[in-house]
């Protein structure tokens, strides 16, 4: 879900970089947008969706890194990031709709509202990582997306 890749304005991510960036951006930009939804629609279901995005993300990132190993350049183009956003969203909605997730009953999540919330969080983070992130953290990209550089 977090847009990380070697496309324009981003980095060539490592696994730890993917995890750190995903967590950090969900906890900031993602949380900000979620709070707007929580207050606007008077429902904390968005917060629970956000937590699941982060939890499933840990596994998604492992899958992405494994796929990345088959790429000679070990990069992750912007087009892949968009694809990731779609697959992660579809998957998450499917497991919610099937009632497989504890603390998140299917009846709480309307498809339209889910799309708006998830879509906005994804888009905001995607655009942020395409460049503005680097105005604040110029060396984030030099460490494969790690927020805490280890040199």
């Amino acid at each position: 879900m977090v847009a990380l890749g070697a496309g324009e304005g981003t980095v060539t991510p490592t696994l730890v970089g993917r995890w750190q960036t995903r967590l950090a951006l969900l906890a900031t930009i993602g949380l900000l947008i979620t709070v707007i939804f929580v207050l606007g629609l008077r429902s904390d279901v968005f917060l629970r969706v956000l937590v699941y995005v982060a939890v499933f993300g840990f596994v998604w990132d492992v899958i992405y890194i494994l796929i990345q190993r088959f790429r000679w350049d070990r990069d992750w183009p912007a087009a892949f990031q968009v694809l990731n956003g779609i697959t992660e969203g579809v998957f998450l909605y499917a497991v919610i709709a099937l009632g497989l997730l504890p603390f998140l009953p299917a009846r709480d999540v309307a498809p339209g509202v889910f799309l708006a919330h998830y879509g906005l969080v994804w888009l905001a983070i995607f655009l942020w990582t395409q460049g503005p992130m680097r105005a604040f953290f110029p060396f984030w990209r030099f460490h494969g997306g790690r927020i805490t550089p280890r040199t």
């Binding site: 070697a6 980095v11 060539t12 990345q68 350049d73 070990r74 990069d75 494969g144």
Partner: peptide, 10 residues
Amino acid sequence: PKGCWTGEQR
């Protein structure tokens, strides 16, 4: 390979 600059290969 691109990963040499900032990614896994770096």
